[in-house]
Structure formats: C-alpha cells, structure tokens
Design a protein around this nucleic acid. Structure first.
Lengths: 344, 344
DNA sequence: CTGAAAGCGCTTACAG
DNA sequence: CTGAAAGCGCTTACAG
C-alpha cells in the first residue's frame, strides 16, 4: 500500500549491501566513516524512515507501553488519570518508548478479558492506572508481561505498585490542625469506598491516637454511597472546628454547604482537602491541601516498568510517593478559648 | 528475550503446517472445520498471542494512529485536549486501532523536527490536536501519511480539518441574548489571540449586524495578553446588560469580578460562556454556554483518518462541528424598561 | 483441504 | 571494511 523507502533501496542506489546500510544507520562497527556519511546523507535525502515493525520482530520489543485505565475513571471529573497518563507518555519518550492508552471497558473487566493491547502483543509492559476489581487483578497477574499498578494496590497481589502516601499525608495534615489548636476534628469520606479514602482515614486516626485524642464516630462523615455517588454530608452539631476531607472536590462541596448554613471559612471552622487538584484553587477561600506528586508517581512507574523489561525478575513491592502539604487560606489557628468551647 | 508462543509451536504440536494454523486462527478458507476448532482450542490453551509486528511488516500497517498535541496545550487547564484524546482512543478501538500520544515539544516544533511517531514509522496516520505554528504546518504537510487537523485550521493549507463551529455558536448565542431584550452586549476576548476567539467574535458581530445594531468598540474587552496570559478585564461604564465571553473560564473570572463590584448575575447583567467545560458548572450561577461536541469532533477525526488510510486521495476540507447552547441561570430576559436605561 | 516456497524489512552471526 | 546467508513470525500466492 504505502511505497516506503527501505534500506535495500538506499543500498541499491549506492551499490552496497543492505547490511552495510543497516550498520551505517545504526552507528555500528564495520563501515568506513566515509561510506557511513554517504549512506546517512542519502537516507536523509530519500526521506528514509526506520521500519520499527521489522525491528520489533527481530528483538521482540514493541517499544510501546500500555496504560490501562478502567472505563469508570474516565469521566470529566477524573482528568487526574489523564494527566498522569500524559506525564507517563512524556517520560516514556526519554526511553525511546511510546504510551498506548487502553481504556478497559466495564464489560471486559467484568468478563475478565485481557486488554487488547496485551492479546495483540502491542506492548512490552503494562501500567494499570486506577483501581480494578479483585477478579481482574488476577487476570492482570496472568499476563506474561512486566506490569505495575499505579495509584492503588492489592494486599494479596505481589505486583509492584505505586501509590500516593495517603496515610502519612492525612496524618501530617491532621497533625498540622492539632498543632494549630484544633481538638474537635471531623473526617469526611466513606471509609469503605476505596483504599485511598480508607488509608487517609487511618492517617487521620493515627494522628488523633498520638495526641491522646478520642476517636469520635459521630465525626466520621460519609460523603458518597457504595457506587461512589456523592451524598449530602450531614453536619454534626456542635460543629467541629476542623474538617479533614478525603479529597478537594468534597472539600469544595462541603465549603459550599457550610457557607449556605451561614458559616465562614476559616473563621467558624477550618476545612482541608487532599489532591491539590483544580478544586483546591476554585474553592473560596483556597484550600489547604495535600499535593499529590503526579510527576514523581509517573516517574517511578516508568522507571519500574523499564527495569522490569530488562530484568523480568526485578521486584519493587509497594512504593509510596510522598505528597506535600500546600498551605492556603482554608485553615486557621484557633486560640485556647475557641478550643474550650468547642471541645465540650 | 521473551519466550513467546508462535504459530509454528502450535503447528508442531498438532503435526500440521503453520500455514494451516494461520488460516484457522484468521478464519480463512481452506481448513476443515474440525481442524480449525482443534487449532483454536490449542491456541487458547497455550496462551497464544498474535504477533502484531509480524503482521505489520507484511501489510505495512501498524494499526496505530498518532495523536500529536503541542506541549503548550498540556497544562492543567488544558485537560480539554486530553479528553478529546481519550475519546479518540475509545473510537479507534472500534476500528481495531490504538492511539499513541505524542506530545510535540516546543523545541521540536521550533526546529521543525518530525514527530518521533512519524520518523519511527509507528503509525498509519496522524491527528494534530491543537494549533501548531505556521512553519510546523508545512512540516506536517511534508509527512507522507494521512493526517487531520483537529480544533484548528489554516487558511492556506489544504489539509483536512475539524473545528467547532465557533462562528455560528457565538452567533446563535448572541441572537439568543438579543431575543431576550439585550441591546448593550459586550464581547470578552483578545480577538487577535487565536482563531477560535476571533471566529467567536465574528459570530457575535454578525448577530449585531443582522439586528441593525452598531458595533461599539468600547464593548470589545480584551481578556489576555499576546502570550495568552489572562489580564484584568476592564468593566465598561455604564455596564452592558450582557457579556458574551469567549470561554467559560473567562466567564467564571468575570462573574467573580462583577460580584466583587457588587453586581448580581443575572439580575444586573447576564454573562454567557463557551465550551461547557468544568467552569460552566462551577460558576455561580451556572453558566449558559455553548457546548463543544467533543464526541462528534473525535468521531469525525477518526472517521476521516480511517477513510484516508484506505484511500489516501480522499479529501474532506474544513469541517465544522455544531455546538449546542446549554441554557442555565447566568442569562435572563430583560424587559423594555431596563433596555431603555441601558441603551443610552 | 493441506502445505512448501517466497517474501515483508531488518539484524545477527559469520566468512572473506 | 564489506556482504552472503539465515532467521524473526506471519501471510500470500500457488501447487498438490
């Protein structure tokens, strides 16, 4: 169909063999410098382009990495995953690789079908971006290919995974609030919903423990149902002095609700988020939050997969990527008097 | 390196030739139904996977499409392009294709380097997503491959392009405001900045013309400098009764500013946006805006590129994708009295 | 219905 | 330094 220039074409024009052309173009030993330059020049003129399929078939490497994102993380509010994918794609470039996005349909996940990117042998490794079902984790493990889980993990699987340090992020954030005088602190999130929400909750809890504070179950506020659909958040009475939200979007919604009820942030209560996504700066006042280090996460994922392509037996285990607290205006120090009143 | 199962392996186990295996697995003529089933069953058992590189080398098709996004459209607020890419990727799947994201670095664009996806022969066609420099358009045209421009066009280039119908979108929107009694209507946007902003401006102007209204240059309000950085929007005095903003994000910022100045939306003035992106629903009140039909744009792009792979001489020209006005709360009808006062 | 032969574009030993 | 031979995994004529 396409009339592509091949090495043979170049060889014929110059009256040499295609082996010599191959050596010249790949800067291999065994061609005189002069001939090499002549070959390269002609290749340029003729618009020669490398046939990567032919190379693939020889060394068995496609030079592509599949990025598998479950369909349900694919909506407008999930642009987080797309940004991670973009970052991955940028980093792969440095290794001479490309990223192929393969959105895993709910159906394929349900039926445990291999992703097409795998069954068609299009990639040398797969990064699974976003939590998949337990069953499908098994399917992934059956794939004979290096793979890495990104942004989630599974307790049983011994697959290498990279997650944000949800636990310590929430822990540090809660510490910060306590240092600033808060004693009545709520956690907002359905703690049975995802591992991220649960781990952030546990970090919050650890901070309370370390400060000798009681866990008050009436201050654990669910934000979504089992399907992940947001629900109305019930405000405790009396109001906590601070809310640790499991994500910025929920913090944004909570701030809205608090304002509607006549409260000012951070005067009447502090609200902190997690993720540092677009909602963090759209909330007014802007949110104090934990920034997820997308770049570092992508960097680790790419590094791991590259290492595993070279050495399939390489193991990395579960790796946490540290986040950073971004201090903005949604949290404030409260003085002793406030504390007394609110800690009743 | 990898110990992959090949057709020959299956053939050997069954004591047939690899030609027969190939025919069976591809549902081609020339194998008895019985043998075919046996081969397929064994292939399944052995975990056979198609080697797409070997197929590529035969028919010259990589079954990949490159999506080229200029680096500068790559930031957090440009998730629009990523959503388009995602949609493209989903649609390609239906054709048995995959999408490879190739972010075009500023450097490569400057130096007029071919995208790697092209020089390494990784794709059968390229979708350029987002405006590239004039010079680079030439580079793209020199690529011996089907290509489509998405979300921008160039007057000289005879490359097929798909754009949102900016002109008619803004035209219809302005008509709507005029029907609702508005006579003093501002346009917000630097009309020299991008073709989209300019075309939307012209649509606004056409609507004024058709209604016998004067173009008032003091009501053309710039929103960004030449680098695209947002600047403070100067509010005209007296205030217009409506603002047609070139995008939702600017409408969001404008609403903020108007509120700070003590105005209520839509009571004191109406504000409409364009894009129907995340800012449309984050603004309070939510924005009446023009929804860009991402799905249709992606669909056309994919359709065109597929058609051109089959027949390289196929031409489509510049194709407009219609948007839809989404009616929300940021615009209202004004009565005759308001009109009198404000049209002085 | 079944398979031997040739070839896609390239690279890897190996020989000269 | 240069190249003939063989092979990567598959498919396409073609012959039996």
């Amino acid at each position: 169909m396409k009339s592509n220039i091949t090495m043979r074409d170049i060889a014929n024009k110059l009256g040499v063999s295609s082996v010599t052309v191959s050596k010249a173009l790949n800067d291999k030993e065994g061609v005189s410098e002069e001939l090499k330059q002549k070959i390269k020049a002609l290749a340029g003129e003729m618009g020669y382009r490398y046939n990567s399929a032919a190379k693939s078939i020889k060394d068995g490497l496609s030079k592509n990495i599949g990025v598998l994102i479950p369909e349900r993380f694919t909506g407008m509010s999930h642009s987080f995953y797309l940004r991670v994918y973009q970052q991955i794609s940028l980093l792969l470039d440095q290794y001479g690789y490309f990223g192929i996005l393969n959105i895993l349909s709910n159906e394929d996940e349900e039926l445990l079908n291999f992703p097409r990117v795998y069954s068609e042998n299009k990639v040398d490794g797969i990064i699974v971006l976003g939590q998949i079902s337990k069953k499908y984790i098994e399917t992934v493990q059956n794939m004979d290919l290096p793979k890495v889980f990104l942004d989630f993990y599974d307790e049983h699987a011994d697959i290498d995974s990279i997650v944000t340090d949800n636990f310590y992020g929430a822990y540090e954030m809660t510490n910060y609030l306590i240092r600033n005088g808060h004693r009545r602190i709520a956690y907002v999130g359905n703690i049975y919903s995802t591992s991220s929400i649960q781990d952030r909750y546990l970090g919050y809890y650890k901070s309370l423990l370390e400060h000798g504070m009681q866990l008050d179950h009436s201050l654990i506020l669910s934000d979504r149902d089992d399907k992940g659909k947001f629900i109305d958040i019930a405000l405790p009475d009396p109001l906590p002095t601070a809310f640790v939200c499991n994500c910025d979007q929920i913090a944004y919604l909570l701030v809205d609700k608090l304002k509607l009820n006549g409260y000012s942030i951070p005067e009447d209560c502090s609200v902190v988020g997690f993720d540092n996504d677009i909602y963090a700066t759209l909330t007014s006042p802007q949110l104090t939050t934990v920034e997820v280090d997308i770049e570092q996460m992508a960097k680790s994922a790419v590094k791991f997969i590259m290492d595993k392509i070279e050495n399939p037996h390489r193991k990395f285990g579960r790796v946490m990527v540290q986040g950073n607290i971004i201090y903005r205006q949604s949290a404030r120090q409260i003085d002793a008097e406030d504390r007394e009143i609110s800690s009743t």
